[in-house]
Design a protein around this nucleic acid. Structure first.
Lengths: 246, 246
DNA sequence: AAGTGGTCTAGACCACCGT
DNA sequence: CGGTGGTCTAGACCACTTT
């Protein structure tokens, strides 16, 4: 159905056009993470192109981790399993092993006016508010991270109530389940800072202790920024941030 | 010539086999950065495969930034132009612009026994020595970075004399010209540390100032580590390390 | 056995670059 | 103009998964 093989379309390679159609299909078609997509042959007929062309479009979505191929089974919308989280979370312990820290304690959830940096990074309008969640996370060895998470208030209504008593390790799962927000990419800025008295108290360190500050912006499929997360982490015991450029 | 289309070869897709042949061709064939490769049609005939298969092999090398395609002109071995350097160098100034800091001053070049970390990261034998270059680099705004660069002595003979009075901003160019060593990938570990008295003096800061320490290992085409570089950078004036996962 | 993705072929035509 | 890479086709056969 629909199809319409050689419609008006012009400008640009067909596989790029198909790639965008597929993104919209996933976004608007109610495909959740892990959901199966139609088989390649069917998609090729639907778009009226050869299999090779359709595959080239899929290849790019696979490279972007938006779609997964499983031989003999089919195509699937990529899910936020632990593996994906591992790809975004880059702090590694002394033995070189990535280990997701627990969601330890909520320090506060509040809605407030956005600061200049939050407006910039999240692309907010002048008067838009943000929801801020402050929490601690702990590693297996007991080390504590301090995290502040800012979300655009307009898209995360009723955040405190919906989070309730949940303490999800992967907030991105929560965003998807509760708000239909799929994170597909991040961009991080790293700095070294000194622990303030408050930081130090919360993390069990002395004031002035050097901390790695990771400011991470998370993006949706359509490249809109949806989360600004600032993490403070002690990196003096072998723990470090690992960067392996693609 | 040679060719030998359907030789013993088995196990594994052909395009992977061809990809490895191409890597060896570049490594052993004396192709310098920027050198043109034979056209796709010729390579396809040489390996005895269809154009599409050859292109799939090339696609992977292009993705790894080992080969470049230029429409209408041909294939080229990727060069270390400033753009490639920008991809590896990830420190961004306050305005968000990447700017390569100058090679400011040599603090010392010496050959010495390798420490435990150097042996680990560079995969050195027990008794192998390293050449260490210590230098400062300065940004346009005057900020200073402190850098220690360790190389396996066995592969960088006569380093001090060959460097002479050169002050290349891109050491990787120097490695390629003088030693035929092509860097194609890096892996960085980041920590926050406190400036020692010596660091502080060299960088014009007070002791205890928080510094971002970037420990970067550079790899050759065949994945051998060839350089361990430790950089200390002041990140309190808006300067930061930018990480955009592929 | 039927259905899926993975590899491979042997062409075609287009867009771009140099002479 | 001829040569190059870029796109696209319409098939073929293989490897894997499920029924």
């Amino acid at each position: 159905m629909s199809s319409n093989p050689l419609a008006v379309r012009e400008h640009g390679p067909r596989y790029l056009w198909i790639r965008e159609q597929l993104v919209r299909m996933i976004l608007d078609g109610g495909f959740k993470g892990g959901a199966p997509l139609p088989p390649e042959g069917q998609l090729a007929r639907h778009f009226g192109v050869a299999l090779g062309t359709l595959r080239k479009a899929i290849d790019e979505l696979v490279a972007r981790k938006i779609v997964e191929r499983v031989q003999g089974k089919g195509l699937f919308v990529a899910a936020y399993d632990t593996q994906a989280a591992m790809r975004l979370f880059r702090i590694v312990d002394a033995s070189g092993v990535k280990q997701l820290p627990n969601f330890d304690r909520v320090l506060g959830i509040r809605t407030r006016a956005a600061g200049a940096n939050e407006r910039l990074r999240l692309g907010l309008a002048r008067d838009e508010k943000v929801v801020e969640l402050r929490r601690t996370r702990t590693f297996a060895d007991g080390a504590v991270m301090l995290e502040s998470i800012c979300l655009p208030g307009s898209r995360f209504a009723d955040f405190k109530a919906r989070l309730g008593t949940q303490r999800p390790v992967l907030l991105y799962d929560f965003y998807e389940q509760e708000y239909g927000v799929r994170i597909v990419g991040v961009e991080s800025r790293l700095r070294a800072v000194s622990a303030t008295a408050d930081d130090a108290k919360e993390m069990g360190l002395r004031a002035g202790h050097p901390l790695l500050e990771v400011e991470r912006v998370a993006f949706e499929l359509d490249a809109r920024p949806v989360e600004l997360r600032t993490t403070l982490c002690d990196t003096t015991e072998g723990r470090h941030y690992l960067d392996v450029p693609g």
